[in-house]
């Protein structure tokens, strides 16, 4: 139980994959200009991280070490296809908008990273928790970015107009550079805080 708590705290806070390791921003950052898409992507990512971590952990004793990366990739890819099929069948509109990005969850370094660093050496139960919390730790950062990008870039939240007519949309926020700047500012704030804590 204590172990679970420890992992959760680490993955969401101090050892957060995005802030501390800058991992896995590749595939998902691209959809953070619209909040709704980000939510779906993050849910998919949490699902895939948790389950692939568990599966790799279950198989860990039999996987030949030379091809372990290929095996993990195969497992991850299978879960991603599952997510893709489910999206297509039950939320077709969102699936249409996300296009190829769902497929790119496969190469999200977080999933691979957790499989390599954690699942290969730990039991299935705790690996599941690790995958789940890593996914959540990653997701809330991206959701915050998406929230601000959509708000500033389009003046909307979840597609609903919240800014008045006085608001001039910052188009740059919806475009690619916006995400880079946003993430940099986020890291700045969080790291700055951590440094302050350490020195005091």
């Amino acid at each position: 139980m204590r172990k679970i708590k420890k992992i959760t705290v680490a993955n969401i806070g101090k050892n957060n994959p995005v802030f501390m390791q800058i991992l896995g921003i590749c595939s998902t950052l691209a959809v953070t200009n619209v909040l709704e898409n980000t939510v779906v992507m993050c849910l998919g990512l949490i699902f895939v991280t948790a389950l692939s971590n568990t599966t790799v952990s279950v198989l860990r004793k039999w996987i030949p070490s030379r091809i372990r990366m290929m095996v993990s990739t195969l497992i991850i890819a299978s879960y991603v296809i599952l997510v893709d099929i489910v999206l297509k069948a039950f939320v077709p509109d969102i699936s249409r908008q996300l296009g190829p990005y769902v497929g790119l969850i496969i190469t999200n370094c977080i999933i691979m990273g957790r499989a390599e660093a954690f699942a290969l050496n730990n039991k299935p139960g705790i690996s599941f928790v690790d995958g789940l919390t890593s996914g959540i730790g990653y997701s809330y950062v991206l959701l915050a970015i998406a929230f601000l990008r959509e708000l500033m870039g389009s003046g909307t939240i979840w597609g609903i107009k919240v800014m008045g007519d006085w608001w001039v949309n910052w188009s740059i926020m919806v475009m690619a550079p916006g995400a880079f700047f946003m993430l940099a500012v986020f890291i700045w704030v969080v790291k700055g805080k951590l440094i302050k804590e350490e020195t005091s």
């Binding site: 550079p177 880079f180 700047f181 940099a184 700045w188």
Partner: peptide, 17 residues
Amino acid sequence: KGLEGAGIALIIAGIMS
């Protein structure tokens, strides 16, 4: 301090973008 490493790299990437 808070921008060292990844932070500044991201800002550079933004400008390059």
